[in-house]
């Protein structure tokens, strides 16, 4: 196996997936908590919107991001006065992955929060804990394993993101070429050997991430008994 032909894509994929997960962590977990507990008007709308990246083709989202960040777009250099430099960079890849993995993290986090008995939170409150303290001392510790699983699932999704990434970040070897886009590129130039190696690494990483998340999910199910 030629390490040099695989390494840049492998490293970039891990970096992009890690950054993407870090980016969605707070908003997705917060939304998961909100959907788990509160009934509010417009809730089904929020749920549907949050789930959109699961059902719409990733290319549609790639297109959306492209339109948004182009020079003449609403978030482009001309509109903002400075260049966010998202398109055709690793930041664009992070954004695309973050968007596409968001609904999965929300969903899994929501289940994790739903598994925390609300009466335990009431008990904490009646013992004098403030809302923030209830969250920090009771809810999060009890939901912890499920939340880690949620982040790992988001990470797995980000590892394999292609459709939106290739449109927003392009396919520049060494700069924005991930394992997924690298496979596509290798196929295009007929480098089957490279394609096989990249696909192998993708499968390995994806498997490891999903297996670990399942482990945490199992622990979370047994913890809140």
């Amino acid at each position: 196996m030629q390490w040099e032909s695989v390494a840049p894509a492998l490293v970039l994929t891990l970096q992009v997936a890690a950054c993407s997960t870090a980016l969605v962590a707070l908003p997705a977990l917060a939304l998961g908590r909100l959907l788990a507990r509160r009934e509010f008007r417009g809730r089904s709308l929020v749920e549907a919107l949050a789930a959109l990246p699961l059902y719409c083709p990733p290319t549609a989202f790639g297109f959306l991001l492209l339109r948004a960040f182009r020079r003449d777009g609403p978030l482009g250099e001309q509109a903002l006065g400075f260049d966010l430099d998202v398109l055709l960079t690793w930041r664009g890849a992070v954004l695309a992955s973050a968007l596409m993995s968001f609904p999965l993290v929300v969903r899994t986090a929501r289940v994790a929060f739903e598994n925390v008995p609300p009466r335990l939170e009431h008990m904490a409150a009646s013992l004098g804990a403030s809302r923030a303290q209830v969250l920090w001392r009771v809810t999060l510790p009890l939901a912890r394993n499920g939340l880690i699983a949620a982040l790992l699932i988001g990470f797995s999704r980000a590892l394999g993101e292609f459709g939106a990434t290739v449109i927003v970040a392009g396919n520049i070897p060494g700069r924005t070429q991930t394992l997924a886009t690298g496979i596509f590129d290798a196929l295009q130039v007929g480098d089957d050997a490279r394609a096989v190696q990249l696909a192998g690494w993708s499968a390995l990483l994806g498997f490891a991430a999903v297996w670990t998340s399942e482990w945490f999910l199992r622990r979370s199910r047994s913890a809140t008994s």
């Binding site: 008995p117 009466r119 335990l120 008990m123 009646s126 009771v138 510790p141 913890a223 809140t224 008994s225």
Partner: peptide
């Protein structure tokens, strides 16, 4: 100070 029937001790 509420002690419910199922105690609701914090398992963690």
């Amino acid at each position: 100070g509420y002690v419910p029937q199922d105690q609701l001790l914090f398992p963690h």
